[in-house]
Amino acid sequence: MSELEDRAQRWIEEIHPHALHLVRARDWVVTIDPDASEGLRIAAVLHDVERAFPDASSSWDPAADWNDPGYLRWHQDRCAEHAVAWLEAQGAAPELVGEVERLILVHEEGGWYEADVLQAADSLSFLETLTSITVAWVRRGIDPEHARAKLQFMADRITIAPARADAEPLLRRALLELGAVAAESPGR
Rank of each mutant, 00 (worst) to 15 (best):
S125G: 01
V135W: 08
I104Q: 07
A115D: 12
P54N: 06
R164N: 02
A36E: 12
G98F: 05
D143K: 03
A120M: 07
L130R: 14
R73C: 06
D61F: 00
V100N: 10
A121E: 06
S37P: 11
W66Q: 03
T159H: 08
I133T: 10
P69H: 09
S57C: 00
Y113A: 03
A43M: 13
Y113Q: 02
E101K: 11
A120N: 05
M154H: 04
W60Q: 07
L105C: 09
E109G: 13
D143T: 10
R51I: 06
L40V: 11
F126R: 02
S58P: 04
P144F: 10
W60K: 02
A149F: 02
E50I: 00
A161R: 04
H107M: 12
R164W: 00
V138Y: 12
Q152S: 12
S123R: 00
A56S: 11
T159A: 13
G141H: 01
I133D: 07
H146Q: 14
F53R: 00
F126V: 01
L118T: 07
D65Y: 03
A155V: 01
W66N: 05
L72I: 14
A115F: 13
H107L: 12
A52M: 10
A147F: 12
A115S: 15
A147T: 14
G39W: 08
E81W: 01
V117G: 10
D143E: 12
I104R: 03
V100C: 07
L130N: 13
R102G: 02
D48K: 04
T129W: 02
E50P: 02
E50H: 03
L105D: 01
L130C: 14
D68N: 15
L72R: 15
A63V: 10
V117A: 13
A147I: 13
W137I: 12
A85L: 11
M154F: 11
N67W: 10
V45K: 02
Q152N: 08
W137K: 04
P144Q: 08
V97P: 00
W60A: 10
A92S: 11
L105A: 11
V138D: 05
K150E: 12
R157Y: 09
D48C: 06
E101T: 06
A52Q: 02
F153A: 12
E38S: 14
W74V: 02
E81L: 02
Y71K: 14
V100F: 03
L103E: 11
P62C: 04
T129P: 03
G98V: 04
D61Q: 05
F53C: 00
E50R: 01
I142G: 01
V117F: 08
W137C: 08
A36D: 15
R157Q: 14
A147M: 12
H82G: 02
D48H: 09
F53L: 07
A121M: 09
S132K: 10
A136N: 14
A43P: 03
L124P: 03
R140S: 15
A89Q: 14
A93Y: 03
W60E: 05
C79G: 13
T159Y: 04
L127M: 11
L124G: 09
S132D: 14
T129H: 05
M154L: 14
P62I: 08
H146W: 13
I142F: 13
A161I: 02
L130I: 04
E50K: 00
G141C: 11
Q90L: 07
I142H: 07
A149H: 05
E101Y: 00
R139D: 14
E88D: 10
L87E: 09
A163E: 04
A163Y: 05
